[in-house]
Write a protein that binds this DNA or RNA. Sequence first.
DNA 1: AGCTTGACGAGAATCGGTATCGTCAGCCGC
DNA 2: GCGGCTGACGATACCGATTCTCGTCAAGCT
Lengths: 140, 140
Amino acid sequence: MPKTWAEDAQHRLREAGYRNGPVRIAVIELLDAENCCVSAADVHASLNERVGLASVYRVLESLHAAGLVRRVDVGDGIARYEPLRESGEHHHHLVCTECGKVEAFDDPALERAIRRVEAKSGYAVEQHDVVLQGACDTCR
Amino acid sequence: MPKTWAEDAQHRLREAGYRNGPVRIAVIELLDAENCCVSAADVHASLNERVGLASVYRVLESLHAAGLVRRVDVGDGIARYEPLRESGEHHHHLVCTECGKVEAFDDPALERAIRRVEAKSGYAVEQHDVVLQGACDTCR
DNA sequence: AGCTTGACGAGAATCGGTATCGTCAGCCGC
DNA sequence: GCGGCTGACGATACCGATTCTCGTCAAGCT
Ligand SMILES: [Zn+2]
Ligand SMILES: [Zn+2]
Ligand SMILES: [Zn+2]
Ligand SMILES: [Zn+2]
């Protein structure tokens, strides 16, 4: 029985010297429930605005520094975060240019093509992002 | 003999109802000289700060609305623009997480993989962006 | 040349995100 | 259990990129 991502994240942050306060736990559990694209404002709203927005940013930042979340930027100037689970599976995003909806997709052939580019690049690539923008089928 | 991108852009903007003032012409010619990733601040600096920054933004916005430039966002919160030339050739970006350098690459196999994803997506995809992030070989 | 209308520049406003700081509470050793 | 250290918290000030507002000016039509 594998630990949940939330348990693992709390454990890893504690080992990194962070304490587990109530905001940290709440944010981690929210992220574990979602698994795609949550913004700081989303978290703040989901927590009923009973926590300071700055604390939300702090927790998200600490999770990012510990490599526990991926930071996703789809070009609208709002940073979103999603859990990076042990399995290593990840996905990329389709953004509707009309309604702003964000959807996930994944494609093994695309991942292979990207890995080949990474190998040729001369960079120590840590992350890649692919964003497709266009009108979704309900908006066209 | 094909028209230059700058000439074409001025023509298309005029047809779209814009007038050609000095700032517009200067910005278009700057973009035509570069072909990768120029920010509004870059343009403003290149023009010796003799023009209003707001005008630079306005021109870039009008070019984007007319589909003459691609807007590139590599996740550092700065919007960059590059000309979209007739030939349709385009590239994607490698960003150094240490020094912030942005480099271009292109890869036909990657483009094919993306086109297949686009076809399956149900979206009318207008643009795609791929960003690879990691340490460049001088920063490692 | 006169008129209309968009282009321009300066500066205010907005907005996401970050830094600061005083206070509070979790955790440690006793 | 108690005192003290240290990080977590919330409020608020701040920052930098972008957008808005508005008075003025000039491009282009007649
Ligand atoms: Zn996602
Ligand atoms: Zn991927
Ligand atoms: Zn480029
Ligand atoms: Zn491409």
